[in-house]
Design a protein around this nucleic acid. Structure first.
Lengths: 209, 209
DNA sequence: GTCTATAAATAGATAGAC
DNA sequence: GTCTATCTATTTATAGAC
């Protein structure tokens, strides 16, 4: 591989990107290898040249995506910031990871609905690392930062739930906006992230409890 | 149809229930009419006797589910409670609707990921009714209850996101608990609902803002 | 209402030429 | 690395007997 970015993506990269789109749009079982091949402008046999099977291709996409979130979250964990700032940075990390790979949120949401059936052990460990890290940050704030004694998983739900739903629901929100629901069109990425950050920190710092 | 509940469900009811499970587990495109027939203990031809197509069957399930949420939310809207109590009741309504039909949360979450592609106009109007109702409750509280001036859609995201993810993630949470993530096993329905209620009301009543 | 049988299209996957 | 051609299983859906 050359050090400069090639002008034309390799067939493997094209397959990878096309597959992410297909899995995002139709789910694992609904995705078709034929359609992925067409979208990637390769022959179907090329997919089996680069990947063992449809399931292996899907698992590789999952691994790539969750490894990226886990890496961002690990950076947050390693910083010297105060717990409240780490919470804010955690929210940012999730939002940035979701934004960097447009097909990630729908795939993530679908995988949750399937009970993580396609997560291989390595990918599952990335997921647990993310969840455990937030737990550690919350407990750190509880022991020496005055955080309220709340189950860290509630904070997790309050962050992942809204952020993931926001990014996964772009198309539906557009339909709701056209149907005349007020406020949907004004829901920007920044607004949502800032709100989730504020609510998480506010809940933990105990004002109004 | 008799007035008392029959001991054995009709073939139509069995198909309906089996289809909900199949769509929840595999998504619309991944669901198989053959598998639905086997699970419902009917012949595949029976499905086409009762329903026009796989898509029509799916849309009928969606309509039934969203009509149920819309009905519960309409009751909340019609009550004479104070805005803050209506917010709490709205959270309860969503949670109860999700709980009453175990396959609803995964189907809902998947439909969001698909941009609501399978929502017919009638069902879409149920969805917009739910979202609009929460908006009305928030604005009511803003004009005469001292609620903070926040985009109601942020409150909506803060409710639907965590509640829906909680109910849709039961299987994955079990895996995370087994993988040693602390706190996941203790995350009960009551804890989550109470937390989401408290956070929504706290955000709106402006403490710590 | 319920069944068997089957059509017609598409699925995932592979063999083998170049 | 890339292609054509093909195998086999499964897909949605229907025709028609009972």
């Amino acid at each position: 591989m050359s050090l400069t970015k090639r002008l034309v993506a390799s067939s493997r990269e094209r397959i990878f990107a096309a597959a992410a789109g297909e899995f995002a749009a139709r789910g694992f079982a609904g995705a078709s290898v034929d359609r992925i091949a067409r979208a990637a402008h390769v022959n179907k046999a090329m997919i089996y040249y680069h990947f063992r099977s449809k399931a292996a291709l899907y698992q590789e996409i999952l691994r790539d995506m969750f490894a990226a979130v886990a890496a961002r979250v690990a950076d947050v964990d390693a910083s010297a910031d105060a717990p409240a700032d780490k919470i804010r940075a955690f929210v940012d990390a999730i939002a940035n990871a979701a934004e960097a790979r447009p097909h990630f949120p729908p795939i993530w949401v679908r995988e949750i609905a399937e009970g993580g059936a396609h997560l291989d052990p390595g990918t599952l460990s990335h997921v647990t690392a993310v969840v455990k890290t937030l737990g550690r940050i919350v407990r750190e704030g509880q022991s020496k930062g005055g955080f309220a004694r709340i189950n860290p998983m509630l904070i997790h739900a309050g962050i992942i739930g809204p952020v993931l739903m926001y990014f996964a629901s772009a198309a539906l929100r557009q339909r709701l906006a056209r149907a005349g629901v007020p406020g949907v069109a004004q829901l920007s990425r920044e607004t949502v992230v800032a709100h989730v950050q504020r609510v998480a920190v506010m809940t933990l710092e105990g004002e109004g409890v």
